[in-house]
Design a binder for these strands. Structure first.
Lengths: 233, 233
DNA sequence: CTAAATATTGTCATTTGTACAATAACTATT
DNA sequence: AATAGTTATTGTACAAATGACAATATTTAG
């Protein structure tokens, strides 16, 4: 497979690609996974992992394959985001691209550069450099979508460690919505979210350690089915 | 332009199309605009208006053009929805399609069959027949998206007449969410939505006529900017 | 003028939201 | 072991929103 260089122009009249915006959470900040391109166009630029879709490939499969090829990440739940089709977005021809995104725990998965990705790097969402193609647009649009989804789907738990403190939970929302919240009131607000309290506590802090919680996905699905509760922040 | 028949296979290795889901509101029901195909494949099937995107055409422009070509509708604000890329969704080759949707006042715009659309028809969302291609999937997914958006964006006013009664407003939500609401409580809930009360009243009803209201878009945008208020139903 | 019908407003108990204060539990230091 | 420092967790009091229901108002039809 080498449809990445100058012969792309002759390969398709126009073509279809897929770009992955992978979000992670670390040190109180939402991060995005970037790769460094070792090929033209935009050689040596940072970009989000993406590539052309094969002619007989379904989009979810393409997303999985492309992400794995470039970053060795697998078993990640990818979700469709927007499609970008500006005719001039690719310097070598018409390439329409569909963004997919995922939320992962950075330390549970190890991203490694592979194929034409020379390096991989997690970058805080508000420190993303100038990227290849229209990837800044794609990252920003998808981050807006993420923030929207954070308010009415319990996806924050894909970013947090499996066991987290209520403060960590709160700080994630404070970061995303760029506003501080009252600790006591935050705890009342999340009263109905099905969390399990564990006996375990935070380690290596030089003050009273916080209790650890985890999200009960099964109970959440039950509540959804019964219609007794709808997630909303 | 005739890339719709058997020569499609040779025209593009794979191609990209755009399908429009146009919603309207009438007689207390949300409707979808359908066209009847006069060409193969799926000749004589009902479908949503859609066609191939030109190689040098931006997606928003393509959406406008395609909708106008088939239904004569214009000056309609179209919004991007999902992209559908199942390799077998089109019987003649790989065609990835991007759905766009719009919300309009049915009687303010007159849809007319044009080009290879033989007929146009507004159909209640819960009475949509078996459609061409995967168009049932597209319509249903986009309707789900619409319902989501109804809860956090003031797009309901694109469906309602410019001047509407509070009951009409309420009934739209009752239809979309399939649940009845208390009249008095509904009025309290919408207290902060910037509506203008007019002196005008409902006509031709055989009981006390209701007062007419309209949505103040300008005031809403101001409130948004100031961050004092966020639409939420 | 009256009945029928729906629009509109009001009441009240309950729940939720908000700001802030108080208490609890742990670490580090003396 | 006692104490200070630090953060976790719970509580309190008042304002605002919600929900079920009742009461009143305005129009048409006769």
């Amino acid at each position: 497979m080498n449809m990445h260089n100058s012969d792309l122009k002759n390969f398709f009249t126009y073509s279809f690609s897929l770009d992955c915006v992978i979000f992670g959470y670390q040190n109180g900040k939402i991060h995005v996974l970037l790769i460094k391109r070792s090929i033209e166009p935009y050689e040596n630029y940072w970009a989000i992992p993406g590539d052309l879709v094969y002619p007989d490939e379904d989009l979810p499969n393409a997303a999985e394959r492309i992400l794995f090829d470039l970053t060795r990440l697998k078993n990640i739940e990818l979700h469709q985001a927007q499609t970008f089709g500006n005719p001039t977005r690719h310097p070598q021809g018409r390439v329409i691209t569909n963004a997919y995104f995922a939320l992962i725990r950075i330390d549970e998965f190890k991203a490694e550069a592979s194929s034409w990705a020379e390096e991989v790097q997690w970058v805080p969402i508000n420190e993303v450099p100038n990227l290849a193609f229209d990837h800044n647009l794609i990252v920003n649009s998808t981050y807006e979508l993420l923030k929207q989804k954070l308010t009415f789907e319990p996806i924050c738990f894909d970013l947090l460690p499996v066991r987290f403190t209520l403060n960590e939970f709160q700080q994630l929302y404070e970061f995303a919505f760029e506003q501080e919240m009252d600790k006591a009131n935050f705890r009342k607000k999340i009263k109905y979210i099905p969390l399990v309290a564990h006996d375990e506590k935070q380690q290596n802090v030089k003050h009273r350690p916080a209790k650890l919680f985890s999200f009960d996905e099964t109970l959440y699905q039950d509540q959804l089915k019964k219609g007794v509760y709808q997630f909303r922040m």
